[in-house]
Every structure is written in structure tokens, then in C-alpha cells.
Amino acid sequence: MAVYSLYVINKSGGLIYNRDFAEAARVDTNDSLRLASIWHSLHAIASQLSPVPGCTGIELLEADTFNLHCFQTLTGTKFLLVVDPHASFIPALLLRIYELYSDFVMKNPFYETEQVIKCELFDEAVEALVRRYLQQAQA
């Protein structure tokens, strides 16, 4: 049970926030920027390829060693969480992170929308939230 990393992608596909919770999860900076924009387009292609109308994009990607959960807000910002395949309650955790984003980033008067998030309070709150989640998961 582990949470590896968090990515926040703005509505045009740029990476605005990246945090790794495990050392091994660290990805090269250039690669993480590219991964973010690739995810943005894959998300759009997946809804285009949908055999049913009204598809809003990928919500969960399952791989051998990790699961990637994606939450897209109404404004097009995407929150990605890379977690262990056995982790549970991740969609709820993503919603909590979105709440923290609204509180600490969007309400920050010095934050310019769609720009890189540099906000200490958000960092701390996310860190605390993930720590609390892991403790609860172990208990």
C-alpha cells in the first residue's frame, strides 16, 4: 500500500504541480513535463475512441506495478495520483486533494491561474493528507 506521486495538469496540458512521495517514483524533470502533456492527449483520444457517446476520458489506468487514478475537474484541470495496485479509496483521496487545491491554491491571491503552483501551505496540506491516509490504510 503506497502513494507514489501526485501530478496536477492544467487545462492546456501543462504540468503545474508534481510531488513524489517515494524516492523510486522520481521521474526526470523533462520526462515528467512530457508525461503530463502526453496524458492530456491520451485522455482526449480515449474519449474520441469511445464506442459509446458521452465519454469523459480515462479515470483509472491499471498496469503491472501501479495504478494511475485521474480526476478531471469541471474546468479541465486534471489531478493524477500514481498509487500501489492494492490501494483503496483513491477517488476519495483525489477529491480531498482537489478540496485542498481550491482552498490553498485558488484562494491564494498571488496565484495566477494555469501557472505553476508554488504554494507552501498546499505542499504541507497535501503531505499531511497523504500521511494521514497511509496511517489509516495501515490501521
Binding site: V52, A63, D64
Partner: peptide, 13 residues
């Protein structure tokens, strides 16, 4: 690392 599937709001691939 290989991947198995992805799930969207309306289908699973």
C-alpha cells in the same frame, strides 16, 4: 512495465 487496462466513465479498454 506493462499495462492491463484503463477505465473511463463509459467503457473499459
Amino acid at each position: 512495465c506493462k499495462f492491463k487496462s484503463f477505465t473511463t466513465s463509459s467503457y473499459k479498454c
